[in-house]
Write a protein that binds this DNA or RNA. Structure first.
Length: 1004
RNA sequence: GCCCAGGUGGCGGAAUUGGUAGACGCGCUGGAUUCAAAAUCCAGUUCCGCAAGGAGUGAGGGUUCGAUUCCCUCCCUGGGUACCA
């Protein structure tokens, strides 16, 4: 019997499912290992071959760890709330839950076909109420906490309230937006509303008016990481700034820990670097500048306090609250004009306009805190309202933007650097000596910074300060298909619904669009009010604002559910807790996380934030979610192109028109030219350089068609216009293309490509039509999407698994090309044949294996272990091929060898491995928990070594010598050879390098 | 602009610590088998050259007995980021 994957694969998948072979045990004496794939969003398009790449790698690793005796947690689930399902619902009226369910079923079916060893009993979906009950609970926990900078962790808001009650907030060091200082007495005098507003400035989940990225096309706000190049990541719609009352997450509180925590993670440096940049720590000082005419201060943040004597003007952001107050009457009109223009510009325009320097003098002056000099105050949109204090002290000699601004408006540029020329550009290096700076003169930059901060603090002007670029994350979305907030509003104040009443289930709505008065889609829900007497959701008509209140209309963003899902897998059915302490203590964080790098500033930052928070509150014992991460590269599609020309015009008799109903349509059919001939035309810079035979072929087509016109209209002066250089590329579905050869007869039957019918083809000389190709992202519109399903159908899951790994290093971006898949499939057939006789029956001997085969086996064990340890899955596949090639050559029949080889292979190709394992007479069951083969070094010990002999580093010949020889003996042996004499050309070598067991190099 | 990856045959890629460059697979060429095809097997396949030989890992330079590997300068491709004071 030949290798028949069509029988083998479904058989084993059924056995695994029936026996729950991959069920992970929560209490086990075995060491644990947690392998996780990034949560997929179940899109309507299903999986293409790029998606399973990471899943295959993690599955191989999970299976490897099982063979090594680990208790492996390898779960899968769905990030099933999200925009696409909702957009689809808006278009079709279908409930997102229904389409999501269908999509999940499709995903599951596709995943199942690839033979993954997931523990499906642990599946979670973010959109299921059992799951989002706990997302709502975590939100409540965040709401109930603030960040204490002294203890450096999140603490209960009740502690903060007691502090306020006894001492006020004067001594509180917390992460907060609170701008007022109050005493205990004042606190007690505030009414409930005021108190709540103050507390919102401290809570980790809080409600605030904030400038948000509003996307009108999607009808919702977006987080910073959901915007790419100024447009929405999903859909590419424009985004504008809008002030809205929104739920936010005080991720800023964790900025420092998110930054330093990166050092302990085993992630690629580039992702850590992206996060570092996103957090954007800068160390400096805040300094207050007194205004000349007002009793106001302008507070600035600077990273260069050492350059304070170089300040020659100040710039405020146009939105800065002091602008109107300080502007002098003669500048008022211009300032108002400038502010208006700036507000009309979108964030994107402002960014795109970097080279255009703009600004406006306010006419006001500030007082330099050390020199007492008057300095002009300007506004300019290069200063951002949302960073630092929205104001800068401009030091044109030390900052290029300030320098440009000063030059542009003719403001004085002071030089406070010793022997540095600043006539052409600012000097931004943080080195050198400070000059003309009173008490800082003569100091090195580093020392001057220290001294400047000391002086600023001594004078009470400000203090040393660290700023982060990281902004608090907007947590509200004006969408339907997301987690509802467990919040109702009483007198405009948010109130949390009690934990025992969770989950608050997403209500039904008739329409998924915003309401007519601009409220989010949940505003359409009829049953969406909270009854505080019966503690249940009731109809909105019952709202009396006494005992029945309106519920929050926003929903949570996509990253809510995905920020903690890895914890739920540990204990997915727990109804009492989001995860039990014991499960979390046993499984701890994810040992290996595989997924794309596109989540660097979103998901990966938010889950680190939530994990740290849950750790602070003592729910879990670790504070990083993903210890090691590998980012798989995207698999790019290889699109196929045909080159065609439509006949658009005629020359000659004007009375004959293509619009004439009698006009023969076949004359207008397109002409297709094969890729190599197309290239020949393209490469010819001049019409005259086009190869004659191509011109002849085109002319034959012209003649043929002109003849048809002549026969129809009896006019031989009319002909079609063909431009040799006007062939244009057109996508053709890759399923009709094999090895770049287009199957015209199949493709023309497809209604999408019916333009191929009746067309003329200029073929290659061998009569085939060759397509051109382009390597680009897979997409429906390019007809280059390869689904795993057809490949599994044609070659089997084991072949697909091995081929995806064989393509190249996991992290690399690589083009998909099915050309090589036959080679991998042949390998599996070869393996099958190795263990079967000519009649197709399993065939092995139980004698001791011969030395050569043992060597091959142990060499393979060594290589594969190394490959797995460094996640080099592609070389793993190569090493299997080498092994089977060698064993075939050796005519190996040893059961002992076969057994070990099959175990070794089982993570990569589990179905065939199970089948062979069974046929080799092993106990009924599964290979999944066999013991990974042990490497025996002694098998590989050799007596001799074939020394490569180089002359000046160039390998010339080889000499086999015993390894027991000393370097001197090796040199003597080598130099006595005939070949050596030939390359020496009678000369004496200058030097001979002998590295025992490695190489001989002769220097001449 | 700044930061981070990467650049090796016709193609995907290998070379793990500075030690035989091009493993393995695809493709291609020739042959065997076959009525034929598929499949299989054998031989060859970095480039130039009939050969001897020479060149060769993006380009140039350096360190070294020896460099795809280490250092410097530059070019190209991909990713991130972009007035962050």
């Amino acid at each position: 019997m030949e290798y028949n994957f069509r029988d083998i694969e479904p058989k084993w998948r059924k056995i695994w499912a029936d026996n729950k072979t991959f069920k992970a045990e929560d209490d086990s004496s075995k060491p644990k290992y947690y392998v996780l794939d990034m949560f997929p969003y179940p899109s309507g398009a299903g999986l293409h071959v790029g998606h399973p790449l990471g899943y295959i790698a993690s599955d191989i690793y999970a299976r490897y760890k099982r063979l090594q005796g680990f208790n492996v947690l390898h779960p899968m689930g769905y990030d099933s709330f999200g925009l696409p399902a909702e957009q689809y619902a808006i278009q079709t009226g279908q409930h997102p839950a229904v389409t999501t369910e269908e999509n999940i079923a499709r995903y599951r079916d596709q995943l199942d076909k690839i033979g993954f060893s997931f523990d499906w009993d642990r599946e979670v979906r973010t959109s299921s109420p059992e799951y989002y009950k706990w997302t709502q609970w975590i939100f409540k926990e965040l709401y109930d906490c603030y960040y204490n900078n002294t203890t450096n962790k999140a603490e209960r808001i009740s502690n903060l309230i007691s502090e306020f009650e006894s001492k006020g907030n004067g001594n509180v060091d917390a992460c907060s937006d609170c701008e007022i200082i109050f005493s205990a007495e004042e606190w007690k005098s505030f009414d409930a509303k005021k108190k709540e507003e103050i507390l919102h400035n401290y809570r980790l989940a809080f409600l605030a008016d904030s400038w948000v990225n509003w996307c009108p096309a999607l009808g919702t706000v977006l987080a910073n990481d959901e915007i790419v190049n100024g447009v929405s990541e999903r859909g590419g719609h424009p985004v504008e700034q809008k002030l809205m009352r929104q739920w936010s997450m005080r991720i800023k509180a964790y900025a420092e820990r998110l930054l330093t925590g990166l050092d302990g993670l085993d992630w690629v440096e580039s992702i850590k670097e992206i996060q570092r940049n996103w957090i954007g720590k800068s160390v400096g000082a805040s300094v207050r500048f007194e205004c000349e005419s007002e009793s106001e201060f302008i507070e600035v943040f600077t990273t260069r306090p050492d350059t304070i004597f170089g300040v020659s003007f100040m710039v405020l952001a146009p939105e800065h609250p002091l602008v109107d107050q300080i502007t002098t009457p003669e500048y008022a009109a211009q300032v108002a004009e400038y502010k208006k223009n700036a507000s009309l510009k979108s964030e994107r325009d402002r960014q795109a306009d970097v080279k255009n320097i703009s600004g406006q003098n306010t006419g006001a002056f500030a007082i330099h805190p050390f020199t007492g000099e008057k300095i002009q105050i300007w506004i300019g949109d290069y200063v951002l309202a949302s960073y630092g204090t929205g104001a800068v002290m401009a030091v044109p000699c030390g900052d290029q933007r300030d320098w440009d601004f000063a030059k542009h408006f003719g403001i004085e540029i002071k030089n406070i650097f010793e022997s540095i020329d600043i006539s052409e550009a600012a000097y931004a290096e943080k080195s050198g000596k400070i000059a003309h700076s009173d008490f800082l003169s003569g100091l090195e930059v580093k020392d001057a910074m220290k001294k400047a901060i000391e002086a600023i603090e001594a004078k009470g002007l400000g203090k040393g300060k660290t700023n982060y670029r990281l902004r608090d994350a907007v947590f509200s979305r004006q969408r339907y298909w997301g987690e509802p907030f467990p919040v109702y509003y009483q007198d405009g104040l948010p109130k949390m619904i009690h934990t025992r009443d969770l989950p608050i289930i997403l209500p039904e709505v008739e329409k998924y669009l915003p309401t007519e008065d601009g409220k989010p889609p949940l505003g359409n829900a009829h049953k969406w009010a909270w009854d505080t007497v019966d503690n249940q959701i009731v109809d909105t008509v019952n709202i009396d604002n006494k005992t029945v209140f309106p519920i929050e209309l926003n929903t949570m963003p996509g990253w809510a559910g995905s920020s903690w899902y890895f914890l739920r897998y540990m204990d997915p059915k727990n109804e009492q807790e989001f995860v039990s302490k014991s499960a979390a203590d046993y499984w701890k964080n994810v040992d290996l996380y595989i997924g794309g790098s596109e989540h660097a500033t979103g998901h990966l930052l938010y889950s680190r934030f939530w994990t740290k928070f849950l750790h602070d509150q003592g729910f879990i014992s670790f504070d990083e979610p993903f210890q090691k991460m590998i980012n798989q590269g995207m698999i790019l599609g290889r699109s196929s192109l045909v080159y065609c020309q439509y006949i658009l015009g005629l020359f000659g008799d004007l009375s004959i028109s293509v619009d004439n109903p009698n006009f023969p349509q076949e004359v207008l059919a397109p002409i297709f030219i094969s890729a190599n001939k197309y290239k020949a035309i393209r490469n010819a810079d001049d019409l005259e350089n086009i190869p004659n035979e191509i011109i002849d072929e085109i002319e034959n087509i012209r003649t043929k068609r002109n003849k048809i016109i002549e026969e129809r209209f009896g006019n031989n002066n009319t002909g079609i216009i063909i431009d040799y250089q006007q062939f244009i590329p057109k996508y053709i579905d890759i399923k009709y293309v094999d090895n770049d050869v287009l199957d015209i007869s199949s493709a023309e039957k497809d209604s999408l490509f019916s333009f191929l019918k009746n067309a003329d083809f200029i073929l290659e000389d061998d009569g085939t039509y060759i397509c051109g190709h382009e390597v680009e992202k897979m997409s429906k519109s390019k007809f280059n999407v390869q689904t795993p399903d057809e490949l599994v159908e044609k070659f089997g899951a084991d072949t697909l698994r091995m081929y995806e790994m064989f393509l190249g290093p996991l992290e690399q971006f690589k083009p998909w090309d099915t050309k090589g898949i036959n080679g991998v499939h042949n390998f599996l057939r070869k393996l099958w044949r190795l263990m079967h006789n000519e009649e197709g029956n399993i065939s092995y001997t139980t004698d001791a294996p011969n030395k050569e085969s043992l060597k091959t086996l142990h060499k393979t064990i060594k290589k594969l272990s190394d490959d797995l340890e460094r996640f080099s899955f592609n070389t793993g596949v190569s090493n299997f091929m080498i092994c089977v090639n060698e064993l075939t050559e050796q005519k190996c029949t040893s059961r002992e060898i076969f057994q070990q080889l099959v175990i070794l292979l089982s993570p990569y190709a589990p179905h065939i491995a199970e089948e062979l394992w069974e046929k080799l007479g092993n106990e009924k069951g599964t290979i999944s928990y066999a013991a990974f083969p042990k490497f025996d070094e002694s098998v590989l010990v050799e007596a001799n070594f074939e020394y490569p002999v180089s002359f000046n580093g160039k390998m010339r010949f080889k000499v086999e010598l015993p390894l027991s020889l000393t370097p001197q003996e090796v040199e003597k042996e080598v130099m006595s050879r005939e070949e050596a004499k030939k390359y020496l050309e009678g000369k004496d070598p200058k030097k001979v390098i002998v590295v025992p067991g490695r190489i001989v190099n002769v220097v001449m």
